[in-house]
Computed example of a mutant assay.
Amino acid sequence: MDYHDLLARLGEGSAHPGGFSATLQLLDTLSIPAGVHILEIGCGTGRTACHLARHGCRVTAVDLHRHMLDKAVRRARKERVDVRFIQADVAALPLPDNHVDVVFIESVTIFTPWRKALSEYSRVLKPGGLLVDREMILSGRKTDLMSRKLKQFYGIRTLATVLGWKKRLREYGFSNIEVKEHSRKMGKWGVDHDPLREMDMNWLEDENVQRMSRTNDRLLMKYGKRLGYAVFTARVPSEAKHK
């Protein structure tokens, strides 16, 4: 069992600073109109994807974790919304070029080979399309031990400063890059009431879960002051991209 298995079993679909409340606040600031085709990367249990669909967006949602997707599909059925769910790796999205208007991501890119991820985000976005990405950022000194520990437990594959992320986005052809939110501290994870949350209750007493919880607390205590988060928005240029 790894960290992502734990989130899936606990039915946690908004594992980022501020939780689902922060997601709703972000979406309010973006004012995405109905009818827009949105691709959510790392949709988890489908809470955001279903919210977007309920508000008139065309939604495609991908996640690599089968157990997460199963819960997302059941949520969409209960909410009676139409979402296209796909099990896929962000490094090789099974979607055509220039396919969606918005790519929406929250705390996913840091777990991926970021070069392939950014390339795929750019590829599937239409010219002029919008990228929205909330990610953990480095706000203090990074050490080899810190990187190794965060990768070993959480699966984090990359950490960068705000300037580092902006440079990466420019490198992969994005323009109009803005930082919508920025905190040098991770803050507290939001705890929102989710009436459709599916929690595998038998896991709560599992020794592995309890041990992972203690490890999580230790890592946040040790490294939390060096980590923050930011929300980036960027555009794919309107001129032709793929020749």
Rank of each mutant, 00 (worst) to 15 (best):
P17W: 03
G18L: 06
G18P: 00
G19A: 13
G19H: 06
G19S: 07
F20V: 09
F20L: 14
S21P: 00
S21N: 03
T23K: 06
L24Y: 08
L24D: 13
Q25C: 03
Q25V: 01
Q25I: 01
L26H: 08
L26I: 13
L27G: 06
T29R: 15
T29V: 09
T29S: 14
L30F: 06
L30W: 03
S31E: 15
S31V: 13
I32T: 02
I32H: 10
I32L: 15
A34C: 09
A34N: 05
A34P: 09
A34R: 15
G35F: 08
V36K: 01
V36T: 11
V36G: 00
H37I: 04
H37P: 01
H37L: 03
I38G: 00
I38A: 02
E40I: 05
E40G: 07
I41A: 13
I41S: 08
G42S: 04
C43R: 08
C43K: 06
C43F: 09
T45K: 14
T45M: 10
G46I: 04
G46Q: 08
G46K: 03
R47L: 11
T48L: 02
T48A: 12
T48Q: 02
A49Q: 05
A49D: 04
A49W: 01
C50S: 11
C50M: 12
H51C: 04
H51M: 11
L52Y: 10
R54Y: 08
H55E: 07
H55T: 12
G56C: 07
G56Q: 08
C57T: 06
C57H: 01
C57S: 01
R58S: 00
V59H: 03
V59E: 02
V59K: 07
T60R: 12
A61N: 02
A61Q: 00
V62A: 11
V62K: 05
V62F: 06
D63P: 00
D63K: 10
L64N: 05
H65S: 07
H65Q: 14
H65M: 14
R66D: 11
H67Q: 10
H67S: 04
H67G: 05
L69Q: 13
D70Y: 10
D70C: 09
K71H: 10
K71N: 07
K71M: 12
K71Q: 11
A72E: 04
A72M: 15
A72V: 10
A72R: 09
A72D: 08
V73G: 01
V73H: 07
R74V: 15
R75L: 14
R75N: 12
A76R: 14
A76S: 15
K78N: 01
E79T: 09
E79R: 12
E79K: 14
E79C: 11
R80C: 09
R80Q: 12
V81M: 10
V81Y: 12
V81N: 04
D82R: 12
V83R: 08
V83E: 00
R84Q: 12
R84I: 08
R84K: 14
F85V: 14
I86L: 14
I86H: 08
Q87L: 15
A88T: 03
